[in-house]
């Protein structure tokens, strides 16, 4: 059966721009080589300025996204405000570490803008919650090697929202085309201080 992380396939990437961040994922859901669905998004809205990307075992992607929807709703009810991306990152970390010896097989990515400081924020995690804070980009999923190569080659700091969208999209599309377990279209979110643009990319359908 192989590793639980590569049973269903999928890819996710986040990038920082100038006063904006972007996060993108592919849409494939498979069982090993068989594609079951070509409309399985892996990015979940936490609130208007925080997004969570989850790759890995599809059942855990659903479980973990539901878990955070619940936790973030409880936070909003208690605090009467939206959770900031950095606080949410710590919530993700501690929640995953609770399952230290029986982890969820997911590699999460968080992207957002801190509404109080206006600062862009991205970070990634391993399956037991170790945070990877990055200034530039975060990748995850079965196409992570390809994404590292693409991002390292295409990324430059301080891109505007439109340039960031182009860079992010090109990085994701070219990366998933070299991975048999990812692809079949993509979702790209560009998050600015008071605007979020979600785009659907068709991509190669094979």
């Amino acid at each position: 059966m192989g590793s639980p992380f590569s049973m269903n396939g999928g890819a996710c990437v986040a990038m920082v721009g100038k006063d904006c961040v972007g996060i993108a994922c592919d849409l494939r859901l498979g069982m090993q080589a068989l594609t079951v669905s070509n409309n399985f998004p892996k990015i979940f809205g936490i609130n208007d300025s925080v997004y969570l990307g989850l790759t890995g075992l599809a059942t855990d992607v659903a479980t973990v996204s539901d878990l955070f929807r619940f936790k973030v709703n409880m936070y909003r009810l208690r605090e009467e405000r939206n959770i900031s991306p950095d606080t949410f990152a710590n919530l993700v970390s501690t929640s995953l570490y609770e399952r230290r010896f029986g982890p969820y097989f997911v590699s999460p990515v968080v992207a957002g803008i801190n509404q109080t400081s206006g600062k862009p924020f991205i970070c990634g995690f391993d399956s037991i919650g170790c945070i990877d804070f990055a200034k530039d980009f975060i990748v995850s999923g079965t196409a992570s090697d390809q994404l590292f190569g693409m991002c390292e080659g295409l990324y430059e700091p301080d891109l505007g929202p439109d340039e960031l969208f182009e860079t992010l999209s090109q990085a994701l599309l070219s990366a998933v085309d070299r991975d048999a377990l990812s692809g079949w279209g993509a979702h790209v979110y560009i998050i600015e201080k008071d605007k979020v643009t979600k785009r659907l990319l068709k991509g190669r359908q094979d």
């Binding site: 090697d145 390809q146 590292f148 190569g149 693409m150 390292e152 080659g153 295409l154 090109q170 070219s174 990366a175 085309d177 070299r178």
Partner: peptide, 13 residues
């Protein structure tokens, strides 16, 4: 070793 990193970059560029 790093062909999986470089090859998609070449496809694109």
């Amino acid at each position: 070793a790093a062909s999986s990193l470089i090859m998609p970059f070449l496809d694109n560029q």
